[in-house]
Simulated assay, not measured.
Amino acid sequence: MDVHKLKEEVVAYSKEIGIDKIGFASVDVFEELKGRLKRHEALGYHSGFEKGSPDERSEPKLLMPEAQSIIAIALAYPSKLKDAPKNKRGDRRGVFARASWGQDYHDVLRDRLHKLGAFLKERMPDVEMKSMVDTGELSDRAVAERAGIGFSAKNSCIITPEFGSYVYLGEMLTNIPFEPDEPVEDGCGDCNICVDTCPTGALVQGGQLNAQRCIAFLTQTKDFLADEFRTKIGNRVYGCDTCQTVCPKNKKMDFHNHEEFEPDPEIVKPRLLPLLSVSNREFKEKFGPLSGSWRGKKPIQRNAILALGLYKEEAAVDELIRLMKQDPRPVIRGTAAYSLGKIGTDACYEAINEAMANETDDEVKAEMKKGLKFQKV
């Protein structure tokens, strides 16, 4: 088989099946990435969601010994929401990050990689492949950078010349010796807007992310949110887009190339109050198709409670009191008490004092005391 000709055929076929960009990379060890991962680990910058050791994440042949090349793909997603519902007093709304709009991107990219794999199998029956999307050991961004999909920017995203950083990434290890593509030249230059604008200072320096401070990570945690981040997350119920929306390279970037990624405004900008009482079944039916649902409803409800407190939304008081007194989950009870204190009506403080007399969980009691501290003497 003429590998050069096969590469041309793969590129042409990728366009037919809705892959916006494709590139090819070597399977050499990602030496710089390995060093960075080990430094991050030592500094405690990891989120804990990563799969594999630094060696596994940077040495493709550890994952597939017979690998000779990597195919990287990118699919663009929208950045603008059409007919976005208004967020107003009495009807407050949260927001899912753009990367969680529409159908779960893991499923969509796996579908494209599966079709690509089937195409290769037809031409080379003995081909060996291993595909990954986000949850695999390999760093999607490192592979995409090497394959010429885009450059690794200071906001820790891959920025493509065509679509900005609003792209999903996936890759496929193969035993076919495809010729690698040339990397894209770095385009950040002296610009430091994303680093300077990050609400929590998670971008330690250009391209280095402290995941423990990143709002996108924090919105996915299930425990009590640390005090310093409670006002920083705003009305985000899942993820954060700040470092992308402020990027000059993303100006006017808004692509609606894939029906699967088209968002339902009522789902990606959900009413906060109904979120507090949604059942598991209702949550799965409404939010299940989103990638942002993977941690379940608890983190999203906790974030919604914090947003209602930040807004001082008095329409939420009765529901927050119910949660504080009746919800079986300590994180929800305690966070409700904290937000009631932020809202700050007399009824809020009376309810906190009343609930504290019956509360047995020490962490929840601590949150109740935090809520009462907002009371003006």
Rank of each mutant, 00 (worst) to 15 (best):
Y338E: 09
K88F: 12
K286I: 10
D20F: 04
N155D: 03
E128F: 14
L62K: 12
T245V: 12
K297T: 06
I71G: 02
K373Q: 14
G52I: 04
N210S: 11
D190G: 10
T135F: 11
N175G: 11
T345V: 05
A67G: 09
N303Y: 09
R295M: 13
L225Y: 06
M1R: 10
R57A: 01
N250F: 07
I17Y: 07
A355D: 02
A216Q: 00
N257H: 14
E350S: 06
S156I: 01
V11Q: 05
I332V: 15
G150W: 03
N155F: 03
I158D: 08
D83P: 06
N235C: 05
V29I: 12
R39E: 15
A315G: 15
R123A: 04
S293D: 01
K80V: 13
W101D: 06
L109W: 02
A12G: 00
L203R: 08
A12V: 08
S277I: 14
I149Y: 11
G334D: 02
N250K: 04
V108D: 02
K325Y: 02
P54H: 08
E285M: 14
A336L: 06
E359K: 08
E31M: 03
H46T: 12
W101P: 03
L306Q: 00
A304K: 02
Q212E: 08
E162C: 06
R112N: 11
P54D: 06
P274D: 10
K61M: 01
P299W: 02
P180H: 07
D186S: 13
I19M: 07
Y45C: 07
I352D: 01
F217P: 00
S58Y: 06
I300T: 05
D126Y: 07
P263N: 15
V237N: 09
K61R: 15
P85Q: 03
